[in-house]
Nucleic acid binder design. Sequence first.
DNA 1: GACGGTATCGTACTTTGTACGAAACTGCTA
DNA 2: TAGCAGTTTCGTACAAAGTACGATACCGTC
Lengths: 227, 227
Amino acid sequence: MEKSAGDTSQGRRRLTRERVLAAAVGVADAGGIGALTIRSLAQELGAKPMSVYYHVANKDAILDGIVDVVFSEIELPSPGGDWRSELRRRAASARQVLRRHRWAIGLMESRTTPGPATLRHHDAVIATLRAAGFSLEMTAHAYALIDSYTYGFALQEAGLPFEGRDTVAPVADSIMERFAAGDYPHLVEMATGYYFKTSYDFADEFDFGLNLILNGLSNSLHAGNDS
Amino acid sequence: MEKSAGDTSQGRRRLTRERVLAAAVGVADAGGIGALTIRSLAQELGAKPMSVYYHVANKDAILDGIVDVVFSEIELPSPGGDWRSELRRRAASARQVLRRHRWAIGLMESRTTPGPATLRHHDAVIATLRAAGFSLEMTAHAYALIDSYTYGFALQEAGLPFEGRDTVAPVADSIMERFAAGDYPHLVEMATGYYFKTSYDFADEFDFGLNLILNGLSNSLHAGNDS
DNA sequence: GACGGTATCGTACTTTGTACGAAACTGCTA
DNA sequence: TAGCAGTTTCGTACAAAGTACGATACCGTC
């Protein structure tokens, strides 16, 4: 009749909202968002399904919660430093985090109640832009632009059937079969002539676009106009 | 004993994959993707649940299918015309379509098997870039950039708790309560000083970013280098 | 050692996807 | 016209998942 010993795999100590959310992130990371059920979550926590409901209102609250957890993992830009490198750093961090938690980007659409980490994140980005000298209007423009690009890139990455270098080729063949009819000639050209080269990694595209955007914003900033 | 008369609301004629998918889009548009169940879909079609399974393998196939339907609604750019206006047109169309079907953007993450309309769409964009004189490498860059921005913008729009002008103010108050503590000062500054003005419409941000991107790409094209 | 709040859990109901096979329908041939 | 072979629709039933409700176990305090 020992107390709090002999756990299966996970810790058996008291549940908390934080532990619940952390476990939920773990389950989603491991098996996709579809694998995240109250029952699987409870098992991960070494508890019974209904126990998690003491710490979380319902599954929607869990989804809101883990989105906020994901945001909390993104490095914040600091309004003091050079705005371009700060924003570059946070964009790179955001992309890495969203890569680590592929399911997150698909969740962001449906969650309209941002958590504290999410708000803090947005606040820091706006602060950085304002400190750099952007007007309110230009800050809105820049903010929408940068975030759209960052999350959009992550969205595309999440939809790719392969990941990184070397995993492209195996997938290529099965995909190419569907193109046998000769439709989509330009897609085929890009695929065979560029994408399917083993040296290609879609992730490398990120920097090109980000640089172009930051350069454009820098010009707008110094020119002082908005278009 | 009349034949094929006296329907309730929807047509009672034979089901087809197309009708099933169209009805699915309708249900999702009306009540969100969460409202799309086999049973609700069957009711919309004036049929019984199991009947749809003759035309569609399972629910996942329906999700794949309606994503492709959404893509089919986006205007294609034509490789002949001015590439900037062509891409602007298709970007605007894409945004409108994704606004009409808010649920679609959240679905794109999980669907890794693109349908014919999706492939045709991508093919047309690539064709336009190639026709404009972009190299394979630059086409890849431009493509990733433009699409990331377009879909990312739609993703952000979908997550907004309000829509368009005039609907901002009502939501503003309830949101502001959460900021009472004084955290997020820059977010508050943007909100009160800019976003919550009744003249503000987030949708207007789209053109600014798109112009900046197209200008940047145009420069890269004429300069002939990649960075 | 009794007690009141805190935390966990057992049971059971509802919703949803869908397997399985039967029934209804359709066009065609004898 | 009757029968037949697909083709299409549907009835029944079960498993997985969210969660309401109330009971039980735990835990620090007097």
